[in-house]
Design a protein around this nucleic acid. Structure first.
Length: 529
RNA sequence: GCGCUUGUGGCUCAACUGGAUAGAGUAUCGGUUUUCGGCACCGACGGUUAUAGGUUCGAAUCCUAUCAGGCGCACCA
């Protein structure tokens, strides 16, 4: 819709035109402040320019009216145009809000260490990433969802140690002393039991077998992670293991040429050349590559696959890392601007206004699985998708269990279910409804129709700006319009019954499509039995 | 100390990335409907957009300084 108008205006004005939502819906459907920017060139007042431009529009199929007001030009779409678009949408529901983009994008997200189940902070990045993925794919982008598994280094050794200590403590009653740095949580108890029955006691007692134990355990933990993600409707296409990358290190290091130098028997990357605070060590004195080396090989691997664009979603605590990775990419001879890094901020939870109590089993963090048990995957996804991911977020789990309009997910599902019920009660046939023409309606119906048809713009905008919260925001607004319309107008038995039902169909489709893009299934009933 | 980031009604968040009178929900108070769905709808109250300057037709948005919070400043991952 917007694109159509934009194209028309671009042809007319021979330049790109900013189109926005008018302050007041009664002004029209779209508006542009173009007269303000022309004012300087033409040396005339914006008011005059806007008036001249507005009156230069002839009667057309698309616009019912074009008016100027205080320097803005307001466009009102014609009922005919809206009706035709509505019919197209109803006949091609699966294509609603789809796009024609073609670019290949590699989207890396979550990438939590395989040393424990996912916690609430991971969940936010996971939901954000998966929502972007769904939006992008709907728009036509060819996106690969990738998880980077940090299955090498000290943390894996620590996992082996933690598992042994846990077993010695809880399984064998040895009451050993637990060091500060060690993983905790119920999953360790579970894993130690499995290890015990699968390999015998020895692997949990013999410190020389820690490594062996760890290598086994990290794969089990990854299974936990994958299952946590699956519970939230999140799946990945590819998993890249850090441990598989180091064999390529020598080749990749050579590729960076002058970017690498030697000093104090270590190898450094000259990342200060690209705005980093310090140069970074990539190979230690003893010849072992650092974590950064793995990440460099990893990003080289990404770029060698020739995607058009790369998106990484990182926890905000990694922001110091951006400069060095981008520097490495430049040294490798690639364009670091193709790599975009989105940071996801911390989350804190409340329950009845008090800090959410962590269960004993989880150690010292709130687990993603606990929250899904508490409020369900739908509510979790919705709340995380509704907030900009780079601002800290606090929410109360009790708010998300309520069944009234303080709970947006309920409010939206209710709107959708209401429409379904009205349909069931009506005796009109599907054909009668889809044949109805949405013209000569009242202002309320016109407004609701326009709102429902706005989804494509929202999806496009939410993805392009990476601000996925625009979609939940839109769905809330659309639901409110629906509820209001429903309150103000009786539908069954009215003169406009078929028209109204078609209109409601479009609203329902918009809600359903939007929810689907959030990884949430629209419900036909909100009753709990 | 340096760097990044955030600061919007009592609370949780928006604001089309520089556009019209800064909007929703919640809380508080008042009203409508009691039916196609338990629900929902309307109104009132609430703001110097942290503070002080600057840029221009126009600033919550951009620039500078200050204040406050968060995060980072590993040869850990």
């Amino acid at each position: 819709m917007k694109q159509r108008v934009q194209t028309l205006l671009r042809e007319k004005f021979e330049r790109d035109v900013v189109l926005e939502k008018p302050k007041d819906r009664s002004f029209g459907h779209f508006a542009t402040p173009i007269a303000f920017s022309l004012a300087k060139e033409l040396r005339k007042s914006p008011m005059v320019i806007a008036e001249e431009l507005a009156s230069s529009f002839n009667e057309s199929d698309v616009f019912e009216s074009v008016d100027s007001l205080k320097g803005y030009i307001n466009f009102k779409l014609s009922e005919n145009f809206l009706n035709e678009y509505a019919s197209y949408v109803i006949e091609n529901p699966a294509d609603f809000a789809k796009g024609k983009h073609k670019e290949k994008i590699l989207l890396e997200f979550v990438s939590a260490n395989p040393t424990g189940p996912l916690h609430i902070g991971h969940a936010r990045g996971a939901v954000y990433g998966d929502t972007l993925l769904r939006l992008g794919r709907h728009l036509g982008y060819d996106i690969t969802a990738e998880y980077y598994v940090n299955d090498a280094g000290n943390q894996i050794d620590l996992l082996g140690l933690s598992l042994q200590l846990e077993a010695q403590n809880t399984l064998f009653d040895m009451s050993v002393e637990l060091p500060e740095k060690y993983y905790r949580g119920e999953y360790l108890t579970d894993l130690s039991k499995i290890a015990n029955s699968e390999f015998g006691k020895d692997i949990l007692l013999d410190s020389t077998r820690q490594k062996e134990l760890a290598l086994w355990a990290k794969d089990r933990v990854m299974e936990l992670v994958v299952s946590d993600l699956k519970d939230a409707n999140i799946e990945f296409d590819t998993f890249v293991k850090e441990s598989s990358l180091y064999s390529d290190w020598d080749r990749v290091m050579a590729k960076m040429g002058d970017g690498i130098y030697e000093q104090d028997e270590k190898k450094w990357i000259k990342s200060t050349q690209f705005d980093d605070d310090n140069d970074r060590v990539v190979v230690r004195e003893d010849g072992r590559p650092t974590y950064l080396a793995g990440d460099i090989v990893y990003h080289n691997k990404k770029y060698e696959q020739g995607f058009d664009h790369y998106i990484n979603i990182w926890g905000a605590d990694h922001h110091g890392y951006i400069a060095r990775v981008k520097a490495a990419i430049e040294f490798l001879g690639y364009d670091s601007k193709k790599l975009e890094i989105q940071l996801s901020q911390m989350v804190s939870l409340l329950k009845d206004g008090e800090p959410f109590k962590m269960s004993k089993r989880s150690g010292n963090v709130i687990l993603m699985s606990e929250i899904i048990e508490e409020i369900g995957s739908d509510a979790l996804r919705f709340i995380f998708a509704s907030k900009k991911c780079d601002t800290p977020l606090e929410f109360d789990v009790e708010e998300l269990k309520k069944e009234d309009n303080s709970n947006p997910i309920y409010y939206i599902q209710y709107a959708h279910a209401r429409i379904k019920t009205v349909h069931k009660k009506s005796e009109k046939s599907e054909k009668e409804i889809s044949d109805a023409k949405l013209i000569n309606l009242n202002a309320d119906a016109d407004a609701l129709l326009f709102d429902a048809l706005l989804l494509p713009e929202i999806v496009e905008d939410a993805f392009n700006s990476r601000q996925v919260q625009k979609l939940p925001e839109y769905l809330k607004t659309l639901s409110a319009s629906l509820h209001k319309f429903y309150y103000d107008h009786r539908i069954i038995g009215e003169e406009n019954e078929t028209k109204y039902l078609k209109l409601l169909n479009i609203v329902a489709l918009s809600l359903k499509t939007g929810l689907g893009l959030l990884g949430i299934e629209a419900k036909d009933s909100v009753y709990k039995d």
